[in-house]
Design a protein around this nucleic acid. Sequence first.
RNA 1: GCGCCUGUAGCUCAACCGGAUAGAGCAACGGCCUUCUAAGCCGUAGGUUGCAGGUUCGAUUCCUGCCAGGCGUGCCA
Length: 580
Amino acid sequence: MKDAVAALFERALDQLIADNIINSVDRKPVHIENTRDPAHGDLATNVAMMHAKAAQIAPRALAEKLIEHLPASEAIEAVEIAGPGFINVRLAKGAAFEPVVRCLTERDQFGLHPTTKERVQVEYVSANPTGPLHVGHGRGAAYGATLVNLLKARGHQVEAEYYVNDAGRQMNILAVSVYLRYLETTGEAIVFPSAGYQGQYIAELGDTLHDNTGNSIAIAFHDLIKDVTPDSETTKDAHIDGLIQSAKEALGDRWNLPFNLALHSILEDIQDDLSEFGANFDQWFREKSLVTSGEIDQAIATLEARGYLFEKGGALWFRSTDFGDDKDRVVRRDNGETTYFASDIAYIANKFSRGFDRIIYVWGADHHGYIVRIKAAAEALGFDPERLTIRLVQFAILYKEGERLQMSTRSGSFVTLRELRDDVGRDACRYFYVMRKADQHLDFDLSLATSQTKDNPVYYIQYAHARICRVLEGLNETPFDEAHGLNHLTELTTQDELDLATAVGRFPEVVKKASDSLEAHLICYYLQELAADFHRWYNGTRLLVDDLQVRDARLALATAVQIVIRNGLDLLGVSAPRSM
RNA sequence: GCGCCUGUAGCUCAACCGGAUAGAGCAACGGCCUUCUAAGCCGUAGGUUGCAGGUUCGAUUCCUGCCAGGCGUGCCA
């Protein structure tokens, strides 16, 4: 409806331009907005004020001219000028319930937009496969998954991807941690490195390794540690690197056994976890593939050829300062190893080579220092950095009964995503994680998330849906005739009913805005408002009345609300229960 | 030090790319169940939008400075 009205005003603008009242270079697009105050009609536009200055005409006078040239439309009942030059539009009575008709026609397609040709990639979570996902990853997972849904609803062709860091030093640390726990199960007395991975799951993997291989890959701990730098606060990195080196030499090819066991079982755990959370991926992209395919070397060669690399202190540097970075970045260390950043460069080249029109990264907010350099890399490789979007997700702070939950990754006593899901359920998790703007801190109140009251927005919205379902199921001998209801929508006369129909009509534009701005929380706010409108109506108006025309009209409206809630919750990955 | 983000009711947050009288929920107070789920609804109260300037018809929104908080700032991953 907004679009239709906007089109009318565009035509009026055409006319004023044709009449030389407005210069075509000064033209600005018509923006139609919903009014807040019913006294201002249904829709309003500031188009007259926007053009008044350039046209050198008083806003209200210009508004008058616009209205003069506004094409006639059945949908519009009245147009008036108000305030400093707003043009308020009052829609015809019949038009107010048009969204209900549309919603019942389109059903689960209602709110979706036409397919575009745009190919979008969303990469999210991408946590190192060195341990189970924790609650910090949960928000990125919920936000990314919702983003994928929103972009699809917008009509884009979307691919979801998880970047698996299976080639870095952290993986070696993981593997050596598992190997040491394995040695313990063979009866070796070991001293666990302070920089190793601590969690219980490491010991379990050590057990599994022992089950698989027996004592066949065991070596004496004192041999392993013989030439290794001692462990201390300042040398713990050298210590663990030494252990890795020593284990690799001792095991040869069999180093793959702890390495692959750890990688595969943890990755599998992450995959199950995300799948149960409703966060789905089309592609699990391996960092290692960039190594084996030679893409890292290739990317470095490309930067070299373009003159963005230089050598200093035995290392190879990328001159990212040419693109606004604070300092230049190393891509190959003096020991010959490429850095993590080098992989990132190759990865972004790989993404662009796959032909995406838009590439979206969802990162934890602690990575914000990387934005400039990754964009710099894209630009240096000759890609358009405008096609690259990086969205940051702030951490969620967990509260339980008003107390902040302390999280310590050091001791391995973090709360896992799985524990959180077991505790509050998938629906509340998915909803709470995205209910606030992604780049803002989020207070995640566990007590609230599990409470079954109207204070809990998830229950509040789901309850509205369940109420509608129960009404529709609770019919007596005369079944609900939807077409009959749609033919008698004029029986809906109260302000509550008008408000509700208007709210239904807003859904498609909310989806559009949420998708275009990548702001998933807008869906949450919208659904809460819709549910509130419904509860208010339901409380004051009996739906199952004897007059079948009235009854079916009300049931049609209720069905529209039911559909919108279901579609909206679906975007969020939250279920819409039929009864509660 | 430098860079990014944030500052709106007592609390948690909105505010439709600059619009009309800044809105919800919680907490507080007062009402509503013989009727489709009270897991709900209605009402009252609550504000110098961190501070000071600037841009213009109009600023919570854009610009500058200051104050406060968060995060980042490795030949780490």
